[in-house]
Each structure stands twice: as structure tokens, then as C-alpha cells.
């Protein structure tokens, strides 16, 4: 490999472009915050209460939205991993890292809200249901990704192995999505699927969605997928770039 200790070729940005990008990100973050507040308002005041489950049902919107946010950020990590293997440009790996860190946060929110909802509805915080198990494994796989990453000192090798592992790990995400097809005995409700086909399942805690609920769900989904997830990833990418830059300056300084 290259003689330079695996340092990526860094393209210095023009100061003006960087500044306008910062302003764009700041604006995006403010918009995210506003939309998030609005979705919270819809969730609490517009969607209406579920008669059987009471207030706790409202967690469902965040629960679904955070899962799909995680799905998209892990998906971004896969595409970035493939791009990294093809081009070997460090920025793809940075994108993958950001995707996985943010995905982990969202997957955690998904697990936590699910667990908190399950306490009053299923009468337990956790049960080894196929879907819950696979979601937990998905979370742990991406924790393993971070551990693998931290275990490799050579930056080029780290990016390479991380990309490959990030691609492999997506298998657990797919597994979580399809498991209700191959294990129909899950007690996890499939609210969206039952809207399309009323299949008799063993789901406990399913509920009918009113049109207001559907609207709230769609809005919340859009906010988390198109605003919360990308905004967090963007900040994380900037942090990583700053870390890279500092690392390079340090190396330069030590060489002198």
C-alpha cells in the first residue's frame, strides 16, 4: 500500500464554501428541531387516544419512525461501504461510520420505546419473541462494528474491514424485517401490514388506526427519516472530518 501511513488525500475546502455549508447545516438543524416539535404536538394533541391502550400507544409513532430512521442510516452505511470498496475514498467510510453511529442511537430508541410500551400492554419489559430477539441482535451487531473498528490501528485497514463488516451486518437488519414472514408466531403487532391485509396473527397489542393516526404516523416518519437522521449524520461527519484534520496536523507537527 501507499508509503504515507494510510492518510487520505485531503481536499482543502475554500473558506467561503465551508462557511455557507455550515450555515446550511445550521438552518437544516433548526428546521429539524421545529418539525420534531410539530410532530410531537401532532402525536400528543392531534392523533387521538387509543381506547384500549391509553396514552402509551402514542409511543408507537416514535417507535416506528426510529426503526425506519435506523433502517435508512444502516442502509446508507451499506451503500457507503460498497462505494468505499470501489473508490477507496475515505469520505465514504466517514459516511458509513456516521450512518452506523446514528443508526445505533435510533435502534436504541426503537428498543427502548418498544420495551416501555410492552410493560403495560404485554405486562413485561422484555420477552424473547423472534422479532424482539432479532432487533436486539441487530443492535449488538452494530456495537460489534464499533468494537472492530476501534481494534484496528492502521487507518486504511480499519476503513476496509469496517466497510466489509458494515455490509455483512446489514443482514441482521433484513432479518429483523423478514422474520415475521418466516416466524408468524411472533406476538409483535404488525400495525401497518394489517392495514393492507387483515391476516389473523397471534399479535398482542395490535390496534386499528384512524385516519388521523395514519397522518400522524406518516408525518413523524418523514420527519425522522428526512430530517432527524440526516441532520445527526451530517454533524457526525463534520466531527469526523475535524478529527481527521487534527490528526493530520498532529502527524505533520511530529514530523517536523
Amino acid at each position: 500500500m501507499s508509503a504515507v501511513q494510510g492518510l487520505p488525500v485531503y481536499q482543502p475546502q475554500e473558506a467561503g464554501a465551508g462557511e455557507s455549508r455550515t450555515r446550511l447545516l445550521q438552518g437544516y438543524s433548526v428546521a429539524t428541531l421545529l418539525l420534531l416539535t410539530l410532530s410531537l404536538g401532532l402525536m400528543l394533541a392531534y392523533a387521538g387516544q387509543d381506547v384500549q391502550q391509553g396514552e402509551v400507544q402514542r409511543l408507537f409513532y416514535v417507535h416506528i419512525a426510529s426503526f425506519f430512521g435506523a433502517f435508512f442510516s444502516f442502509g446508507a452505511a451499506v451503500l457507503a461501504g460498497i462505494q468505499y470498496l470501489r473508490t477507496r475514498a475515505a469520505r465514504w467510510d466517514t459516511l458509513a461510520l456516521a450512518g452506523i453511529e446514528v443508526g445505533l442511537l435510533l435502534a436504541f430508541i426503537n428498543l427502548a420505546t418498544g420495551s416501555i410500551w410492552a410493560r403495560p400492554i404485554w405486562n413485561t419489559w422484555w420477552t424473547w419473541d423472534p422479532r424482539l430477539t432479532s432487533a436486539a441482535v441487530m443492535f449488538l451487531t452494530y456495537v460489534a462494528y464499533l468494537m472492530l473498528r476501534n481494534g484496528i490501528d492502521n487507518p486504511e485497514r480499519r476503513r476496509l474491514f469496517a466497510s466489509i463488516y458494515g455490509i455483512l451486518a446489514f443482514g441482521t437488519v433484513v432479518f429483523t424485517l423478514v422474520i415475521i414472514r418466516i416466524r408468524p408466531d411472533t406476538i409483535h403487532p404488525t400495525v401497518i401490514a394489517t392495514q393492507l391485509s387483515t391476516s389473523g396473527s397471534e399479535a398482542e397489542g395490535a390496534f386499528e388506526m384512524s385516519s388521523r393516526m395514519t397522518q400522524t404516523l406518516l408525518f413523524t416518519l418523514a420527519v425522522w427519516i428526512f430530517f432527524v437522521t440526516p441532520a445527526l449524520m451530517w454533524w457526525r461527519i463534520r466531527l469526523e472530518n475535524a478529527a481527521e484534520r487534527l490528526h493530520r496536523l498532529k502527524a505533520q507537527y511530529l514530523e517536523e
Partner: peptide, 20 residues
């Protein structure tokens, strides 16, 4: 085997991927 932790990291990285 090319990482710092070597042996210790294999089960952690392998088991979740092999779980399905």
C-alpha cells in the same frame, strides 16, 4: 486476527452475523 484484540474479537464480531 489482524486487529489489536485478536482472539477476543472473533466471537463478538462473528456471533451476531451468524445468528440467523
Amino acid at each position: 486476527v489482524q486487529t489489536r484484540a485478536r482472539e477476543a474479537l472473533l466471537p463478538i464480531a462473528l456471533l451476531p452475523v451468524a445468528l440467523p
